[in-house]
Simulated assay, not measured.
Amino acid sequence: MANYIRLSENKRRLRKKNYKEMIANVKPRVDDTSPKLNIREALRAPNLRDDCNAFERIRRINNELLRNVNMVSRIGGQLNTFRDKMPTVARSRVPYMVLQKRLLEKDNEKFGQLLKTIGTTLDTHVDPHLLRRVKKDSVEFVVPAQILAKYSQLQMPPYSQLRRLLRPVIFLDFYVKGLRPAGRLTVQLYTEACPQVVLAFVRACHYRDKNNILVNRLFPGLWLDCCLQLPEAQKIKPERIEYDMRALDHNLPGTLSFSLDHQDALRQNALRFSMSLKPLRVLNGKRIAFGVVRSGIKVLDSMQVFGMKKSGKLTKEIIVSDIGLLATK
């Protein structure tokens, strides 16, 4: 205190000023800023699942407790906890089921042996008119007189052999690439309609040149466009082609026909033809029909899903897997 009194007035003011500046510039060592709030911790998001499970467990316990209280209130609290007899344990049905299975297998085996001994004389009590009948060709083959008149200078074979010559039968096996076999078409060709075209098909089927028949387009509900590649030696000249539009009409589905308008394709050793998917009578007199599908028309119907209606573009590639000739009677 004595030293303080001895200080002059100026020194006291100077010390006081320095003290105030020191107080003003003091920085606390403790971080007094507010902490950041974590929303996940505040809402306890990670523990919501545990809270729900705990709530569900407590609810089940309370329900069980209420049921027990209700039972006690109904019976007046009198419970018989003493059992004179031991609880019986249910026997397993597995051995019995295995035995039944073995007996059933023996019965099926005996029944199968019995079916093998049954002949065709078994009376099925089915009326004869309901039995399936073999379809026969109701139209007798007759050689058109106007066709034979054009070949009067030739020595014709016996009438019994004309059917094989004028009505060859071929087959075409179709396959949807990457999916499944489509099936087989049996086609009867009409030689009097266009001899050169029928001969080209017979040659291709005789040598099994399946790669020479290509499927280009498919118009659902109309027709299937195909192309027959011809060797150079068997080239058909458009100006020398012989045909007769009166031989066959487009009155049946599965009619094979071609148009003389595609002469450019013929000059390039390619015959463009089509298979109709329905009767197209409007084409009578406009296109040359030379064949008709005799069996397998459902194969054409099943392939309609792989063609586009407007452009005819194939959604799945259709190829001819095999071709050949069939013997006719």
Score class of each variant (00 low, 15 high):
Thr121Ile: 09
Arg287Ser: 08
Ala42Thr: 08
Phe55Asp: 11
Arg6Gly: 08
Ile75Asp: 08
Ala193Gly: 05
His129Leu: 13
Pro144Trp: 09
Phe55Gly: 09
Arg83Tyr: 01
Thr121Glu: 13
Arg91Ile: 05
Arg13Cys: 01
Ile236Ser: 06
Gly77Ile: 01
Arg163Met: 06
Arg208Ser: 04
Arg272Leu: 13
Pro144Thr: 10
Leu48Ser: 09
Leu7Tyr: 04
Ser311Cys: 09
Ala193Ile: 02
Arg217Gly: 00
Cys194Trp: 00
Val142Met: 13
Asp264Ser: 10
Ile319His: 00
Tyr159Gln: 15
Val69Ser: 09
Ile5Asn: 10
Ala182Cys: 00
Leu154Glu: 14
Lys210Gln: 12
Ile39Arg: 08
Val202Trp: 00
Phe174Lys: 02
Thr81Asp: 06
Lys286Phe: 04
Met245Phe: 08
Met308Arg: 15
Ala90Gln: 07
Asn251Asp: 14
Glu232Pro: 02
Arg59Pro: 00
Glu242Asp: 13
Arg60Ile: 08
Phe111Ile: 15
Leu325Phe: 02
Ala2Asp: 07
Ser311Pro: 01
Arg203Glu: 06
Gly76Asn: 04
Val320His: 03
Leu271His: 00
Val320Met: 03
Lys106Ser: 05
Gln188Asp: 05
Ala182Ser: 03
Phe171Asp: 01
Val282Thr: 11
Val176Ile: 14
Gln234Gly: 02
Met97Trp: 08
Asp225Arg: 12
Val198Asp: 04
Arg60Phe: 03
Phe306Asp: 12
Lys85Ile: 00
Leu185Met: 11
Ile75Val: 10
Thr120Ile: 14
Ser311His: 04
Gln100Tyr: 14
Thr191Ile: 09
Asn38Ile: 10
Leu66Asn: 09
Ile323Arg: 03
Phe290Lys: 02
Glu140Gly: 09
Thr186Val: 10
Asn251Ala: 13
Val30Leu: 11
Ala289Gln: 02
Ile288Asp: 10
Leu228Pro: 01
Leu199Lys: 12
Asn63Tyr: 05
Asn18Asp: 06
Asn212Phe: 06
Leu14Asn: 09
Lys278Cys: 14
Leu114Tyr: 07
Leu224Asp: 02
Leu99Phe: 09
Ala42Gln: 14
Leu115Ala: 11
Leu280Gly: 01
Asp123Leu: 13
Pro158Cys: 15
Arg272Pro: 08
Asp31Gln: 03
Asp127Thr: 06
Arg217Ser: 04
Ser274Glu: 08
Val94His: 02
Arg6Pro: 00
Ala45Ser: 15
Val143Thr: 15
Ala45Phe: 09
Val139Ala: 07
Lys150Cys: 03
Asn212His: 07
Arg246Ser: 15
Lys136Val: 11
Gly324His: 13
Val305Trp: 04
Ser160Pro: 06
Gly312Ile: 07
Gln234Cys: 11
Phe219Met: 14
Ile147Val: 13
Pro87His: 07
Pro28Tyr: 12
Arg44Lys: 12
Ile288Leu: 06
Tyr190Arg: 11
Leu252Gly: 11
Asn25Phe: 02
Val169Glu: 11
Arg29Met: 14
Pro238Trp: 05
Val98Ser: 10
Lys110Phe: 12
Ile318Leu: 12
